[in-house]
């Protein structure tokens, strides 16, 4: 009986792309609706700790929607309804007792278009620590800002212009500023939604390098339209199609020998 049950569990896990390794984020049967329209269908996906997971798939398949479920940014959209469970560190983040503000203070997010606040470079980075009241002393704050900018690979470029508005930086610098802003709150998770789509190849390369370094300390989930980028920066890749999770696995496997034909068609560029 017991053995049989385990077998069934194993079979289910395999089907639902669930790994046996310890995961930080566990999603089970996540459905998302925009009004009457369903955007995600029963997503089961585990995201491992301190690794980079990339979400790929054709436009409109629900990658951003899924990403926004993880820090509950979908709550902001009135017509959006989320069903199913998402656990971070075994805590159901959609439980009524969960404080969204506290949840988001543990998760950094980087958007497709760089969106620094119309404040100085310094204030952009200091915003999160000040907001959550974690750092009270000016010296500590200065150190935090420097460290975050350092980690985002921006310190050497902006150390003399901390007082200038963040919006006066170049596009690539702005995006790294947004990354610095996100890591300044010491999140355990960083979500990135096509962070390089507005950048040139050099700026993109810098950010990819950065992601690679950051993965030692952060759990990173990145949405990307570039197969090469997914292959370069991520350890695991999840392929979405029409609101369904088709396949998830080690990046190498997804790009070399995916289980599903659709995945193969997409990663080799034969899709559509």
């Amino acid at each position: 009986m017991k053995l049989n049950g385990d077998l069934i569990m194993d079979e289910q896990k395999k089907q639902n792309n669930i790994r046996n390794k310890k995961s930080l984020i566990e999603c089970r049967g996540v459905d998302v609706f925009y009004g009457d329209k369903q955007a995600l269908f029963g997503i089961n996906l585990d995201i491992g700790e301190k690794e980079v997971t990339s979400l790929i798939g054709p436009s409109g398949c629900g990658k951003s929607t899924f990403l926004r479920c993880i820090n509950r940014m979908n709550d902001v959209i009135e017509i959006c309804k989320v069903a199913g469970t998402i656990k971070i560190d075994n805590e159901d983040i959609y439980h009524p007792d969960v404080d969204v503000v506290e949840l988001r203070s543990r998760i950094g997010m980087v958007f497709q278009k760089p969106n620094p606040f119309p404040k100085s470079v310094y204030d952009n980075v200091a915003y999160g620590p000040k907001l959550h009241g974690r750092i009270l002393h000016k010296d500590d704050l200065d150190a935090k800002v420097e460290k975050s900018l350092e980690r985002a690979g921006l310190w050497s470029e902006v150390k003399d212009r901390l007082g200038e508005p963040g919006t006066s930086l170049s596009g690539g610098q702005q995006q790294r500023l947004c990354i610095a802003r996100a890591i300044a709150i010491d999140p355990s998770i960083i979500l990135m939604d096509e962070p390089c789509s507005a950048l040139d190849p050099i700026a993109t390369a810098k950010i990819e390098e950065l992601i690679d370094e950051l993965k030692d300390n952060f759990t990173i989930t990145i949405v990307t339209h570039s197969m090469q980028q997914a292959a370069r920066v991520s350890q695991r890749t999840a392929f979405f199609h029409l609101g369904k999770l088709i396949e998830v696995g080690d990046t190498e496997k997804i790009f070399r020998s995916p289980d599903h034909e659709q995945t193969e068609a997409y990663v080799t560029g034969r899709y559509g």
């Binding site: 820090n71 940014m73 902001v76 503000v101 506290e102 949840l103 988001r104 203070s105 998760i107 950094g108 997010m109 958007f111 969106n115 620094p116 606040f117 915003y127 999160g128 907001l131 959550h132 947004c178 802003r181 996100a182 709150i185």
Partner: peptide
């Protein structure tokens, strides 16, 4: 969005 995502 940026501010909300920072936990404001």
């Amino acid at each position: 969005e940026a501010a909300l995502a920072m936990g404001a």
